[in-house]
C-alpha cells in the first residue's frame, strides 16, 4: 500500500503477486493488485482482478471501493454502461466521493448529455471543496481536473468565455495539465484571441504529455 501511495506501481505489483502465491484467495491482495494494474493502464488485467473481488465475499473494510475502481477500469475497456452502473452502485455506499461523480460526468460527455455532465462535475467540485475545507483530504488535484472538465462542457455548449475562465482556474492550480492547455488553446481560438491561443499552445507544448498510448 505504501508503494502504491508512492506511485511505485511496478514494485507494488511484483510484491502483491509474490504475496498472492501464499494467499491466493486473499481478496484484499486482489484489490491492491487491481489498483496497481489500473495505475499501470493494464485495464483488462485489472478488470479480472476486480471481478474476483466483486464475485467473492471480501472481509476488508469498505469493500465497495472495488466498485469505484471497477467503474474506471470498465470505462477504459470501453464499457460505458457497465462503468456507469459501477459508479452509481458505489455512490450508494459513498455518496460524498466526488471522483465517482467525476467519472459519471465523463460518461455523460461521451453520450453527449451535457446537462448530466455539468451536474456531475459540479457535484464533484462541491465534494472536493468540502473535503479541502474539512482538511480530511487533499483534493486540490481533483478540484482542478473537475474545473477543466466543466470547462469542456462549456466549450461544448459554445460558452467560450465561461470555458476560458474555468480552464484558467484549473490551470492556476494544475499548470502541468497538457490536456487543459490544449483545450484552452482551442477556446481562445474560438474567442478569436490569437495571442491567448498562441500562449496556451506554447504552454501546452512546454508540458509533457501523459503516457500517450502508442506503439512503444
Amino acid at each position: 500500500m505504501q508503494r502504491l501511495g508512492r506511485g511505485d506501481n511496478e514494485g507494488s505489483l511484483a510484491l502483491l503477486r509474490a504475496m498472492k502465491v501464499d494467499r491466493p484467495d486473499d481478496l484484499e491482495i486482489a484489490l491492491f493488485e487491481a489498483l496497481a494494474l489500473k495505475e499501470l493502464r493494464r485495464y483488462s488485467e485489472a478488470k479480472v482482478a476486480l471481478e474476483r473481488v466483486l464475485d467473492g465475499t471480501p472481509e476488508f473494510r469498505k469493500p465497495w471501493t472495488s466498485l469505484y475502481y471497477y467503474g474506471w477500469v470498465l470505462m477504459n475497456t470501453g464499457d460505458a454502461d457497465g462503468s456507469r452502473a459501477a459508479f452509481t452502485a458505489f455512490l450508494e455506499f459513498e455518496p460524498t466521493e466526488g471522483d465517482a461523480y467525476f467519472g459519471l460526468g465523463l460518461l455523460d460527455l461521451e453520450r453527449r448529455d451535457l446537462d448530466g455532465a455539468e451536474s456531475n462535475f459540479l457535484k464533484a467540485i462541491e465534494h472536493a471543496e468540502s473535503a479541502i475545507r474539512s482538511g480530511k483530504a487533499n483534493r486540490a488535484a481533483d478540484w482542478a481536473k473537475c474545473k477543466a472538465r466543466l470547462g469542456e462542457v462549456m466549450f461544448e455548449r459554445e460558452r467560450f468565455v465561461a470555458a476560458r475562465d474555468l480552464l484558467s482556474d484549473s490551470l492556476r492550480l494544475a499548470p502541468q495539465s497538457h490536456e487543459a492547455w490544449y483545450l484552452l488553446h482551442r477556446v481562445y481560438k474560438k474567442l478569436g484571441d490569437a495571442e491567448g491561443a498562441a500562449q496556451a499552445l506554447a504552454r501546452h507544448q512546454a508540458t509533457k504529455p501523459p503516457g500517450v498510448p502508442t506503439n512503444p
Binding site: 465475499t57 469493500p63 457497465g82 452502473a85 452502485a89
Partner: peptide
C-alpha cells in the same frame, strides 16, 4: 457484492 456485480453485468447486457 455479488449482487452489485450482477447489477453491473445486467447493465451491460441491456446495452447489447
Amino acid at each position: 457484492m455479488n449482487r452489485i456485480r450482477s447489477l453491473v453485468a445486467v447493465a451491460g447486457v441491456a446495452v447489447a
